[in-house]
Amino acid sequence: MSVSETRRIVLPKPKPRVPRWITGTLEVVALPLVILAAWSVSAMLAPNNRFPSLWVIGEAFGQTWFGSALTVDVLPSIGRLITGILIAIIAGVAIGLLVGSIRWLRSLLEPVFEFFRAIPPPMLVPLLALALGIGDQAKVLVIVAGAIWPVLLNTVEGVRALDSVQRETARSYQLSAARRVVSIVLPSASPQIMAGVRQCISIALILMVISEMSASSSGIGYQILVFQTNYQYAQMWSGVILLGLIGILLALLFQLAERVVLGWYHGLKGAERA
C-alpha cells in the first residue's frame, strides 16, 4: 500500500446534483414564466379586453404576422433595421477612424457632433419625411442618424487610446498606413467599437418602430399603432411580442459576433485577473 493511498482523505459523498444545463435553463426562463403566469391569472380572474389572455394573443400572433403581413410589414421592417444598423456601423467606424486619427478634424467636428447627438432622433422623422418623403430611404436614414453616434464616438475614443508603445512598434517596423489601420488601430479599438455597436443595435430597433409610427403606411410599428386605434388589442400585443423577439434575436447575433471579434480581449482580461 503506498503512502498516498493510506493518507487519502475520504470526502463525504456529494449529494446528487441537478445537471448544470437544467439549472442554467431554469435561471433564464424562471422570471419570464412567472410573468406569463401572472398575466394568465389576471386575464382569467379579471377579464379585460385590453389585456387578453395569452392564448388569444398567441392565436393573433400567428394570424397577424405570418400572412401577407410577413412580406408587407415584417420583412421590410427588419430589412430597414438591418440596413440601418449596417450603415451606422460602417459609416460610424469609418468616420470615427478619420476623426480619431486627425487632430484638426477632431477639434473641428467635436462641437458639431455634440450638437447633432443632442437632437433626439425621433425629431428627424417629420424633417426627413419633408425632405425624402415616406419611403424606405427616409426611414433608414432616421435609424442611421440616431444609431451612428455610439459607434462613431466610441471609435474616436478607441482610436485615440492606441497604446504609445504599439504605435512606436508600428512606426519602427515601417508598417504601411493600411496595415496599421487593419492590424493595429482597429483591433486595438475593437472593444470600444463593440460596446458602441451594442448600443447602436438597441437604438436602431427603437428608431425602426418610431420611424414607422408617423408618416408611414406599413411596417411593424405602423401596424401596432393601427391595431391600437382599432381596439384590436390581441393583435397589438402580438406586435409588441414580435418586437421583443426581434430584439432578442439581434442580441444573440451580437453576442456571437462579439465572441469572434473579442475572443482575444476576454482572454487577455482573464489572464490579467489571474
Partner: peptide, 15 residues
C-alpha cells in the same frame, strides 16, 4: 529593429 522594455504593450494581444 527595436525591442522595447514594455513587451506587454509592444506585442499585439489580438494576434
Amino acid at each position: 529593429a527595436v525591442v522595447f522594455q514594455e513587451y506587454g504593450r509592444s506585442l499585439m494581444p489580438w494576434m
